[in-house]
């Protein structure tokens, strides 16, 4: 069992030094977790460290593709506001984290 980092990662480095198993490594285009090393922090901490500090919703997922920090859970932005903003920005370059949610299980 292991967690994974997806393309929503903004490469903020916050998770990397916290991993008790040095499972997280800098890669392109974003940080990755070595599934062979990740223990989901079981026996080490109450909660997986990477997911505890990651500021980006839905960037860290479990083996089922479920986001450990679902949209709205970290910023508190109401889902409606996120959806409205995403719609308003559709077609422009910028996109909000929530838009990648559909691809949650991709990697």
């Amino acid at each position: 069992m292991a967690l994974a980092i997806n393309e929503l990662c903004v490469n903020c480095y916050a998770c990397e030094p916290l991993c008790p198993n040095s499972a997280i490594y800098l890669a392109r285009p974003h940080f990755r977790i070595d599934p062979a090393l990740c223990t989901e922090c079981l026996g080490e901490y109450d909660a997986p460290q990477c997911a505890e500090i990651c500021p980006i919703e839905a960037a860290i997922i479990d083996e089922a593709g479920e986001a450990l920090n679902p949209p709205g859970s970290l910023t508190g932005i109401p889902l409606q506001a996120l959806a409205a903003a995403a719609a308003a920005l559709a077609g422009t370059q910028a996109h909000l984290p929530v838009m990648g949610q559909g691809a949650g299980g991709a990697p």
């Binding site: 903004v10 916050a14 030094p17 500090i53 500021p55 980006i56 910023t75 508190g76 984290p97």
Partner: peptide, 14 residues
Amino acid sequence: APACNIQCNYCNRK
């Protein structure tokens, strides 16, 4: 210094 340890409501970590 890329990492942060708090979230502010006026900040987007992207």
